[in-house]
Amino acid sequence: MQTNRTMEILVGGFLLIGLVALFFLAMNVSNLSRGVAGEAYRVTARFDNVGSLTERAKVTIAGVRIGRVERIEYDSKTFEAVVTLALDNRYNALPDDTFAKIYTAGLLGEQYVGLEPGGGESNLKEGDEIAFTQSALVLEEMIGQFLFSKAEEKSDDVF
């Protein structure tokens, strides 16, 4: 009887340890503890070029993460990318002339959306569109422009 009891306690302990490990993985390792999906509001923004922005990329304001990119679609009428941003409901006081810009984290890091608040009277609401946007910097384009301007300088010297 005593051995049975020890065995039951050990099995119970094993199940408990397994469940605690699962809980630890869910809460401390994954993004479950910082979910914004439920209590979020969505706004859209149109960009000429989103670069390598991906879904689930972060959305920051003043460097603080306040949401994530939910969907990226292509509008075949205006030839623009339509990006849906899911923003945390706690930060629902963004002016309606907020500026959205695609940044790169570090030199080769991933891309994310940075918001810069404007000075408008009313606030962005669910379904609104951010009017002022700036596209991602594409490295090839920058290098191309740089080479082009260099070439121009050279040709100025000649004549």
Binding site: L22, N28, S30, N31, L32, R65
Partner: peptide, 19 residues
């Protein structure tokens, strides 16, 4: 170590698929 981990590891995509 911890914040980068919680940013990047998705509960559904990573943890549930592993389970």
């Amino acid at each position: 170590y911890w914040t980068q981990m919680t940013y990047k590891i998705d509960f559904q995509g990573d943890i549930l698929n592993g389970v």
